[in-house]
Design a protein around this nucleic acid. Structure first.
Lengths: 304, 304
DNA sequence: ATGAAAGCGCTAACAA
DNA sequence: TTGTTAGCGCTTTCAT
């Protein structure tokens, strides 16, 4: 019965018998019990995705969707856990659902990896923390675009929100690296929140530093900078070119429409799924983390 | 041992024994096995949250955070499932994780509720589909605000995106109801995507219908409408007042800053958690769905 | 090709 | 108060 219900490969079962089993199952309204199955088999079909506190752009759901779909094709079930200071820590959740793989977009410390393995995860696959990290790549791509357009003095606008600021500092590293590579000074760094006057004074500082092109931490900040420019009667890209990141929906309707860096979420999701299935098959506990620089693309609009 | 490790109430165990057990557990690096526990106990501590395909505003994570935190206080673990056309259907996920409760923000059909129970969920708690539904309330609040400001001819702007359009039609019902309640004609309905010319022509149609106040399906659409107005050399709120919904971060930095309707996610999350804990204790299988109208609030800014 | 049975790691009822 | 044991619903090995 178990063989039939699980469609176990490499086994010859008479069509007649198979039919009878399936038939009885239907008649009895049989539903496999996941916990029992997991207990007996020693593994579950559950993959846990950790979603970090700082939303990497709202489009994240496209990543999840692709990932879930691709995993489902291999019989795996995706559930997600949204990190939060007061919820349960990731390893607890991992243990609670009996996940056999855990993955996520944020880089992970070694002690966390160990904790996850201890919690029963047989594969743990996170994003690379190395040179090629997405965060840094975003900043790099922004800068390279501006440099290519001829700007020689760049600025960078961090968010005044604490969590977002940290994320921005990560992206800034890429911008700084790109400047260095082009033999330019490092970018002038200013901070702005999502209020017009903050943005306006950020713009002022940038101007006094004779910056002509600015990378904003993300599109929201970029839009605020655009508002700040208007406040001074200035325009992008004429007076200062501005480029955002994440390509949120409002970027396209900003005035002027905002150039941005988009993360190709669906593609990243599919690749991640593949890597997980692979690792699960090869019983590789912690495969080399993935780089995702290849999943970024520039979306050029009027603001640069 | 089981009693000690589970801290089972209503049982007197000598401190000495308790210590020895806990001690041994630590020494052996003991980790409870969730699947085995669930199998034997017949229930798990897992609550599954279904997140619909259409993001109810990106702030949804605030809801999840509160929900997770409040559940954690009762020993429950929250995992989420992001709906997607190609992922596994909700009941499958529910069965796979052995969830003992399933909840979500979208209203649910009766057949889905049954399927979830069949999948092993002992409580299923979704949002009310009735008069007081959030979606409708959003539209109602928008309209009431404009009416209060003296507008007698309202317009409603749907999104041209398919999924968002359906969501908008739901919100529109509330706007229509509010108009009826004030003895006004139903709102003039137009559609616009996130491109300036679409928005501009939507504005044009609205003007020919002598609309003076428009409810946009959401903030993104509202910002597009603002851009459409500028395109015609018009301004909000002077020529047409516009109000959005969801209160996304960019709403505050739009020109002019956008009046919007915000969903008090943290509060809704806490109330939901409470209801689940309650239902789980009372063994009520499908408690009456919750209304969340009380969790909405108007955020007045310059655009109206 | 099929039937029988030994666990998987726990909980909870029962005995001692 | 503590020890013993029968399952929970499945998988998988071993006989048949």
């Amino acid at each position: 019965v178990s063989f039939v219900l699980n469609n176990r490969p490499g086994l010859s079962i008479p069509e007649e018998t198979r039919r009878r089993v399936l038939d009885a199952a239907r008649r009895l309204d049989y539903h496999p019990h996941a916990s029992a199955r997991a207990l007996a088999a020693g593994r579950s079909d559950i993959v846990l995705l950790s979603i970090p506190d700082l939303p990497i752009g709202q489009g994240i759901s496209r990543f999840v969707e692709e990932l879930a779909a691709a995993l489902a094709e291999h019989g795996l079930t995706l559930v997600t856990h949204l990190a939060g200071r007061n919820g349960k820590p990731l390893p607890d959740v991992c243990a609670a659902v009996g996940a056999s793989a855990v993955t996520g977009l944020e880089p992970l410390g070694a002690e966390m990896v160990d904790a996850l393995h201890a919690a029963g995860a047989s594969v743990v696959l996170f994003q690379s923390d190395e040179e090629g990290s997405v965060m840094r790549s975003v900043g790099r791509i922004q800068a390279e675009h501006l440099i290519e357009l001829g700007h020689r003095r760049l600025g960078y606008v961090l968010s005044s929100d604490d969590a977002l600021r940290r994320m921005g500092e990560e992206r800034l590293l890429g911008t700084t690296a790109a400047c260095a590579a082009a033999e330019l000074e490092p970018p002038a760094v200013v901070t702005a929140g999502l209020e017009v006057d903050e943005a306006a004074s950020a713009v002022e500082r940038l101007r006094t530093l004779s910056v002509t092109g600015v990378c904003a931490f993300n599109d929201e900040t970029a839009i605020a900078v655009l508002a700040g420019l208007r406040e001074h009667g200035l325009q992008a890209p004429g007076d200062i070119a501005v480029i955002g990141a994440d390509d949120i929906p409002t970027a396209a309707v900003a005035t002027p429409p905002l150039t941005s860096v988009r993360f190709n979420l669906p593609q990243a999701g599919r690749r991640r799924a593949e890597a997980i299935v692979d690792a699960l098959a090869n019983r590789a506990k912690t495969p080399p983390p993935q780089g995702v620089g290849a999943d970024l693309q520039l979306v050029r609009r009027a603001s640069t």
